[in-house]
Write a protein that binds this DNA or RNA. Structure first.
Lengths: 103, 103
DNA sequence: ATAATTAACTTACTTTATATAAGTATAATA
DNA sequence: TATTATACTTATATAAAGTAAGTTAATTAT
């Protein structure tokens, strides 16, 4: 006999933020908009390839937006949308948990 | 010039709970101890193989414990430790976010 | 003027993780 | 005796991630 299944929205949320690197990228962007290289510098173990891929996914999911400034040379900034910013309480709880229970 | 890197504990926390299925398994166990099959029934898209692997990882990480009851037939229950239970606020915030922003 | 450097990627290829399907041991039930 | 159930394991295929090198456009250094 089968019990109830998990709420599809909850599952879908995990499909996005439960991927490798995603949480860290969001964490970095919570401190303000950043350029590609600025994100890389904070998370040096992540490859360019992965950062590009995750940024595209997060943009597609409406969590961040990619802003192009037509300067010379062009400047590209990644900034959280309202939907992305709303993830802050999750990140704060993660931080608390990590400090209390890790290592 | 490189900025500050991310807190290692925070990163380590994501290595555990940011893996596929992990969050859902924890969510299920927050409602009480469960047998292998009970978890499967709530998350039917996950294979036996993945559930076995994740349960072992979570046990190794001290997030849950595997309790064997010497009945006939043997009954095995998975239950969250204090460390695992402490993840509840994260899951609650996830749920809130998912309900507000998904779909 | 040419060479080297930087940002923000892309492409090709390898390795690891996950999915799919089937099999196993032990016991209960029909 | 045959079938079903729990809690796995094993084998193999496919998808995701890692590694390394290359690209484009502009900038600074020689």
């Amino acid at each position: 006999m089968k019990g109830l299944q998990i709420c599809p929205k909850f599952e879908a949320a995990f499909e996005i933020i439960g991927k490798r690197w995603t949480g860290l990228i969001i964490h970095v962007l919570l401190s303000g908009s950043k350029r590609f290289k600025e994100i890389k510098d904070v998370i040096p173990e992540m490859s360019d390839r992965m950062l590009t891929e995750r940024l595209k996914e997060l943009e597609a999911a409406g969590i961040l937006s990619r802003n192009v400034y037509s300067e010379m040379p062009v400047r590209i900034e990644y900034v959280l949308t309202d939907k992305g910013h709303a993830l802050e309480p999750i990140m704060n709880e993660m931080q608390k948990w990590a400090e209390t229970w890790m290592e």
